[in-house]
Amino acid sequence: MVNGVSHPVVCKPFDTLLTVLREDLGYFGTKFGCGIGYCGACTVLIDGKSAHSCCLIATTMSDRKISTIESCDDDPVIQKIQDQFLKEGAIQCGYCIPGIVMTVRGLIEESGQRVITEEILRGHLDGNICRCSGYASIVRASLKACVDE
């Protein structure tokens, strides 16, 4: 189930979730960066938790709820994160941004009522590389989005 819609897909046994999302289902918002689980450009939510879709085998995902950046139209929390990123000027080349937005979305979901400190946030972002921003504006924007929640 991707963004609330279930998609029957025929794929090769070892196709990654990322490949299926992009190439079979056309969710190009999820980016291909390193392909080996280090950059986080491919981050999606699996049952609410953020994960690197390049390291997941698509065939194991059949009964999981997957959300990609394209779910932002129906998710006010994602929209709030995006708004803060825009306001803070956290988006430069933007290639890492969909992945980072999903990571922050996952953190907000996971933390529930707990306060998200800068340290927790930075730790959580350690699966995402941004080569443009030095993370500073991303951290500022994300903290604002977390506080609002």
Binding site: K31, E70, Q82, L86, I91, G94, P98, V101
Partner: peptide, 9 residues
């Protein structure tokens, strides 16, 4: 160009 990038579009 920020919004299109943030939305993955």
């Amino acid at each position: 160009d920020g919004r299109a990038k943030a939305e993955g579009k």
